[in-house]
């Protein structure tokens, strides 16, 4: 599959179907790939695609004031299912024109989660991570261990309904349209069983770890505001200290701001240097949006976003309760 991917990217660059293609190459740490920007056909040599290609590369289309999209007439990007949904989101929200992106879909089998690899290695330093079948072998200092793949894959991947791109210009292999995930919202369902006090306690404890480095926001494909509300100072919306109240405000507003827009790519979870459980609230909001408006972000390029439309018969019980 990798060879086919390399050949495809090479051809795209040769035929100038895209001026630049973003993919992944082997990173300097085990289990983590790093973004690769390919401008010339020979650049594909380093390209990889495996369980380590965590980053949602489409976020580069909108980062740094959309510089990449401005510098290049057409940007190619290699996508997993979640990443492809981000491109759809950009198109729907008029951030990037669909025709200016060349989408290369790849068959995704899920991505490793840094935090889970660490946990599996019991805190020991990891030297290499290899998958074979459904078994992952982790080697490290005084360590050699095999675990079922599921134990180290990201939750976003384990409960992913759309592992393959639905919107693409070319797909390597045969895309699955949708896979059956009966427990898609299992973490949310568990969370909902707690009392309000317990939920608040959990959220407070998680968000109190925040150091306000904004890595979650900066890797998030849905966070592309030219000026984030936390950076505005006239008026200033939020205190700049890492005190828990301010951190909670930051995270909850971000949750609401990406309501109906989160594609659950898991980038924020991996990016967080202090391992906050950022997924639970995003998933909770995703569930609410699904139940209330029957909307899932990034599936249909012609569908208006849930938060940008209004129908009379939408559930409105939240107004009363």
């Amino acid at each position: 599959m990798l060879q086919e991917l390399k050949d495809t990217v090479k051809k795209i660059l040769e035929e100038k179907k895209a001026d630049i293609v973003i993919g992944w190459k082997k990173g300097t740490l085990p289990g983590i790939a790093t973004p690769l920007f390919m401008e010339y056909p020979e650049d594909v040599g380093e390209l990889i695609f495996d369980h380590t290609c965590r980053n949602n590369l489409t976020s580069y289309l909108t980062k740094d004031k959309r510089k990449l999209s401005k510098d290049h007439a057409k940007v190619g990007v290699i996508v997993k299912g979640c990443d492809a949904r981000s491109v759809v989101l950009y198109a729907v929200e008029n951030q990037v024109k669909r025709e200016n992106v060349f989408i290369i879909g790849v068959h995704c089998e899920g991505m490793y989660e840094k935090k889970k690899l660490r946990a599996a290695a019991e805190g020991k330093e990891i030297f290499s991570v290899k998958s074979s079948g459904n078994i992952v072998t982790i080697k490290g200092r005084d360590l050699e261990k095999s675990v079922p793949e599921k134990e180290v894959l990201s939750d976003s991947c384990i409960y992913c309904r759309y592992p393959d791109a639905r919107e693409y210009d070319v797909f390597i292999g045969e895309p699955r349209k949708e896979v059956d995930v009966p427990e898609e919202f299992s973490s949310v369902n568990e969370f909902e069983k707690k009392t309000a006090e317990e939920r608040w306690e959990y959220i407070t404890e998680e968000y109190s770890k925040c150091i306000r480095c904004y890595a979650c926001r900066n890797v998030c494909p849905s966070c592309y505001c030219n000026e984030c509300f936390v950076d505005q100072n006239n008026p200033q919306w939020i205190g700049k200290t890492p005190e828990t109240t301010d951190s909670i405000i930051f995270h909850l507003i971000r949750n609401i701001h990406i309501a109906g827009r989160c594609v659950d790519c898991g980038s924020c979870v991996t990016a967080c240097p202090v391992e906050i459980d950022l997924r639970i609230m995003n998933k909770k909001v995703e569930k609410e949006i699904r139940e209330r408006f029957g909307y899932t972000a990034g599936l249909d390029i012609n569908e208006k976003p849930a938060m940008a439309t209004f129908c009379e018969h939408e559930k409105q019980d939240f107004i009363m309760s």
């Binding site: 790093t34 980062k63 480095c213 926001r217």
Partner: peptide
Amino acid sequence: QKLAAKCVNCGACAFI
């Protein structure tokens, strides 16, 4: 440009 391309400009490195 080449070296900086992948940086997403968060503060994780500086804060750590």
